[in-house]
Design a protein around this nucleic acid. Structure first.
Lengths: 364, 364
DNA sequence: TGAGCGGTAGTAAGCGCTTACTGCGCCGCG
DNA sequence: CGCGGCGCAGTAAGCGCTTACTACCGCTCA
């Protein structure tokens, strides 16, 4: 039904091999012949059969991206940046991408992560970018690590973006050049935020954290704790009481978490949220409780998503260069940027102080 | 290198045809044989070669989604909903997706839309969902329509989601059952919004519109105009003067547009934004000009993205059921929902009144 | 008892492309 | 004048899977 290479070849009066060579461009073909072929391609409106070509060449033009939730701008921005790198991979004028991005929503579930990995492997994806924090379940992370190692060993480029490097401890060592990491400094960011609040004079700092089983959550909490512990006012029991775990990185988690927090520790004068989205829920719950932000309670987010600058009030947060991280991950996945020694790139962060944080009221 | 069907067949002591049949599941295989095969698959960790299977079966498991900007939650939500429908397409327990979504960022450019269409066609995608408004350039839309018609005729299911049905006027008639549309009522929504402002007493209603060449922009403007014209206070010159076109559906477009608007028509008491994101920019510009929202100027958005309820102030807007639209589009693309007569599904909308709109001050 | 049939499984012919290998014509050099 | 080499282009062997067709077995039914 569809036009095939052979049709084009016949139309141009050459062999199908020649057509293939003209199209792939990695073999010398005389100018005249080349033009004849290209004209035939035009005239017949020939479109390569991707599967056939992938089968014969044993490689495909697909790049997989695993995200927790594509509706969340955090992942959207990263995915968009990764895709941006696929452009300019064209062969002709302008940014005509050659590779296609397959975006898979894992919903944060390790099982689905594994499932999608299989699906991508089935498609013989050239590279796979895994975004978002990992789940801490040792069984799953071992299974995942094993899978990734095997994929990497099989030639699939694997890039972990925004999650810590593989650390199952067991299994053959790292696969250099094929299993890369672009990590955020979640600890450092959270620490900076907590130090900011401490410097403002806050002593009762609540923390509405993300799901307990995620590495991201743990790292941010660790940074928070580190800042607390380094401060004269440190009280482990208080810190414990002021930390609540939410059900996810959603607005509702912030809302619910804050209600719990306010009930448990009404003396709270500042709340650190798992991320900006959660912070919105935190703000809503505080306002509902009749508390003003930042006069009565300060609030800080994490990530600095675009909406944070327009929230009410504008959100103090830690800016994570998602765009840059995604682009980096994309380049590593495509192999257009040499991997750093050790395979791990750590992306910086920046404290962004806006209107949602202020000194506590006198006596706070 | 990789394990093949033949390997599995040998291991299980059957022919490769049998293995294929067990895995595809669309042919009877005796229980004992099936188990033997499945065990072999497990033991050898066999993963189907997607390209090979797509080549032989002349169809792939890929579903393409074209979006303007994956970092924009508007598209993220739709994409996420479409993907949601791919799950549950599994064969075993739980939602194990069979199909994979390929998300392509077109950046709103018609050329790239065409390019990605080619790429997806090359991959022999089973279906393609195009989201977001179309560009009004007659040349491009004719080219696009022709392409889509041809793809649809070739068996690729095409679903337009959030954009008007194809209307090039020329070219063979519609391809029933293969070229579907899920449209938003942009006119109706904008009309409702303007009526809301008129009812509040506003007479100087500015409109910071999206890019002039997009259908979405035109439709929303038309709804706005319709409401205006139906009102006793209608003044074409004023309406004209109060409408500014922005450079895109971004915050900065709202900011810039509002500055132009305030300069051109300082008497403005209400501003309608192209969408919620633009509305954020509008608010920023107004605030910068020393105007309070909604006391001095009312602002309304469009779409009701998640952040709108948390903006400062909370945004009056028109809720578009993106989730529902995406899910619908996904089902139509997969063929799991029968297409409506005529192929066009129109999704409703809902006026959401929040804190950013209020009556104008006396004399406004 | 034998033809016929339903239920399984094997055989093998591609699907459309890539690429190693071969072939051919022409030039330069000995 | 002959031969090696070079630059193109053709030949054909797969890549791993699906599936039409065929084969076989064991029953049922006349």
């Amino acid at each position: 039904m569809a036009v095939t290479l052979a049709d084009v070849a016949a139309h141009a009066g050459v062999s199908s091999a020649t057509v293939s060579r003209v199209l792939s461009g990695n073999y010398p073909v005389a100018g005249a012949t080349r033009n004849r072929v290209l004209r035939a391609v035009e005239e017949l409106e020939y479109v390569v059969n991707g599967p056939a070509s992938a089968l014969a060449a044993a490689s495909s033009d697909l790049l997989g991206i695993l995200v927790n939730d594509i509706a969340d701008p955090f992942f959207g921005i990263i995915a968009s940046a990764v895709q941006g790198e696929l452009e300019g991979q064209g062969q002709g004028e302008g940014p005509v991408p050659r590779k296609l991005a397959v975006v898979c929503n894992t919903g944060g579930s390790p099982e689905r992560e594994l499932t999608y990995l299989t699906l991508l492997q089935r498609q013989r994806a050239a590279a796979i970018v895994l975004t978002g924090g990992a789940v801490e379940d040792p069984e799953h992370s071992a299974a995942l690590a094993a899978r990734l190692r095997r994929l990497a060993a099989g030639g699939t480029r694997i890039v972990l973006c925004g999650r810590p490097p593989l650390s199952d401890g067991q299994g053959g060592g790292p696969v250099p050049g094929a299993l890369l990491t672009v990590a955020f400094d979640n600890r450092g960011g959270a620490r900076a935020l907590t130090e900011h609040l401490l410097a403002l004079g806050h002593r009762h700092i609540g923390y509405v954290a993300g799901p307990a089983e995620r590495t991201t959550t743990r790292h941010r909490l660790e940074g928070h704790s580190a800042a607390l512990e380094a401060h004269e006012s440190f009280d482990p029991a208080r810190a414990e009481r002021l930390t609540v775990h939410g059900g996810g990185y959603h607005r509702s988690a912030g809302y619910e978490g804050t209600r719990v927090l306010l009930h448990r520790a009404p003396e709270t004068t500042a709340v650190l949220a798992a991320n900006d989205t959660v912070a919105l829920g935190v703000c809503a719950a505080l306002r509902e409780a009749g508390l003003r932000i930042p006069e009565d309670v300060s609030v800080a987010g994490f990530d600095d998503l675009p909406f944070s600058a327009d929230a009410s009030p504008t959100l103090t947060t830690v800016r994570l260069p998602l765009q840059e991280a995604g682009a980096r991950a994309g380049r590593l996945a495509l192999g257009t940027q040499p991997p750093p020694r050790g395979g791990v790139t750590t992306i910086g962060h920046e404290l962004v102080v806006r209107a949602s944080t202020a000194p506590p009221r006198a006596g706070g």
